[in-house]
Simulated scan of single mutants.
Amino acid sequence: MTPVAIHTVCETLAYAVGFRTFLWTRQRLAPGAFKHKDEVAWIAVSAIVGAALGAKLSYWLDDPLTAFANFPDLRNLLLGKSIIGALLGGLLGVELCKKIAGIQQSTGDAFVLPLTVGMCIGRVGCYLAGLQDHTYGNATSLPWGVDFGDGIARHPTQIYEILFLLAQYAWIHLRRHELAPGDRFRAFMIGYLLFRLLVEFIKPLFYAYPGHMSGLQWLCIAGLLYYHRDLPRIAQILFKGNRSAWEPR
Rank of each mutant, 00 (worst) to 15 (best):
Asn70Pro: 02
Asn70Phe: 13
Phe71Glu: 11
Pro72Arg: 11
Pro72Gln: 09
Asp73Gln: 12
Asp73Arg: 12
Asp73Leu: 10
Asp73Cys: 09
Leu74Glu: 06
Arg75Ala: 13
Arg75Pro: 02
Asn76Glu: 13
Leu77Phe: 11
Leu79Trp: 14
Ser82Tyr: 03
Ile84Lys: 09
Ile84His: 08
Gly85Cys: 02
Ala86Ile: 05
Gly89Glu: 00
Gly90Ala: 08
Leu91Tyr: 15
Gly93Asn: 07
Val94Gly: 12
Cys97Gln: 14
Ile100Tyr: 12
Ala101Thr: 09
Ile103Gln: 08
Gln104Val: 14
Gln105His: 12
Ser106Leu: 07
Ser106Phe: 11
Thr107Met: 07
Asp109Pro: 04
Phe111Gly: 03
Phe111Ala: 07
Leu113Ala: 09
Pro114His: 08
Leu115Val: 15
Thr116Val: 13
Thr116Asn: 07
Val117Ser: 03
Val117Gly: 00
Val117Phe: 05
Gly118Tyr: 06
Gly118His: 05
Met119Glu: 13
Met119Thr: 14
Cys120Val: 15
Cys120Gly: 04
Arg123Trp: 04
Arg123Ala: 02
Val124His: 08
Gly125Arg: 01
Cys126Arg: 01
Cys126Thr: 03
Cys126Phe: 05
Tyr127Cys: 06
Ala129Pro: 07
Ala129Cys: 10
Gly130His: 10
His134Ala: 15
His134Met: 15
Tyr136Leu: 11
Ala139Thr: 12
Thr140Leu: 04
Ser141Leu: 12
Leu142Cys: 06
Gly145Ile: 01
Asp147Cys: 09
Phe148Asn: 01
Phe148Ala: 02
Gly151Asp: 09
Gly151His: 11
Gly151Arg: 07
Gly151Trp: 13
Ala153Thr: 10
Arg154Cys: 01
Arg154Ser: 02
His155Leu: 11
His155Asp: 08
Ile159Ser: 03
Glu161Thr: 10
Ile162Lys: 00
Leu163Gln: 08
Leu163Ser: 12
Phe164Gly: 03
Leu165Val: 09
Leu166Pro: 01
Gln168Thr: 09
Tyr169Phe: 15
Tyr169Lys: 05
Ala170Asp: 10
Ala170Ile: 09
Arg175Asn: 12
Arg175Met: 15
Arg176Val: 02
Glu178Tyr: 11
Glu178Pro: 00
Leu179Asn: 01
Pro181Leu: 01
Pro181Arg: 00
Phe185Ala: 14
Phe185Lys: 01
Arg186Leu: 06
Arg186Gln: 11
Ala187His: 06
Phe188Val: 04
Met189Pro: 00
Ile190Ser: 02
Tyr192Thr: 04
Leu193Val: 04
Leu193Trp: 08
Leu194Glu: 08
Arg196Lys: 13
Leu197Cys: 10
Leu198Cys: 15
Val199Phe: 01
Val199His: 00
Glu200Phe: 03
Ile202Gly: 03
Lys203Ile: 06
Pro204Met: 03
Leu205Ser: 09
